[in-house]
């Protein structure tokens, strides 16, 4: 039962990671690729880690080995660090891309370029 839950979490994680990678290969410009990268791979990795945490909790209740407690807590810390740094890093990439003069290619509205051209 618990094994099935961990397996489902791993499956969802792999699915979203796959869609994220397909997204960065398919989308037309940098900003839409960033959408795919940031959201999908972060969400996928959160689910992978959730699967690992469920598995570690199951092993902990079975064997009572403190190694699995360490595994679960460290995995949670790694994922929290990853979620924060990924969001901030994608913000930095988007800002750098706009500063280097790359405008969103198919775009219906661009308020930032309007403000920059007015200055």
């Amino acid at each position: 039962m618990i094994q099935t839950a961990a397996m489902i979490c791993l499956g969802i994680g792999i699915l979203f990671n796959t869609l994220g990678v397909i997204g960065i290969l398919r989308f037309p410009d940098v900003y839409t690729r960033l959408h795919a990268e940031t959201k999908m791979t972060t969400f996928g990795t959160i689910f992978l880690a959730l699967g690992v945490i469920i598995y570690a909790g199951w092993m902990l209740s079975g064997t009572n080995d403190s190694q699995y407690l360490t595994l679960a807590i460290h995995t949670a810390i790694a994922v929290i660090a990853l979620a924060f740094t990924n969001a901030t890093g994608s913000h930095a990439i988007a800002r750098a891309a706009h500063r280097s003069g790359q405008l969103p290619d198919p775009s219906v509205v661009d308020r930032l370029a309007e403000v920059k051209s007015r200055d």
């Binding site: 994680g13 990671n17 994220g20 990678v21 960065i24 940098v30 690729r33 960033l34 990268e37 791979t41 972060t42 996928g44 990795t45 992978l48 880690a49 690992v52 598995y55 570690a56 595994l71 995995t75 790694a78 990853l82 990924n86 890093g89 994608s90 990439i93 750098a96 891309a97 280097s100 790359q102």
Partner: peptide, 25 residues
């Protein structure tokens, strides 16, 4: 362009972290 490559690198980093967690198990 260069930002495209950075996006790909960032994706690889995230995937490597996930892979390391799974390898640990």
């Amino acid at each position: 362009t260069a930002p495209d490559r950075v996006v790909a690198l960032d994706t690889i980093n995230t995937l490597v972290v996930g892979g390391m967690i799974l390898l640990a198990v």
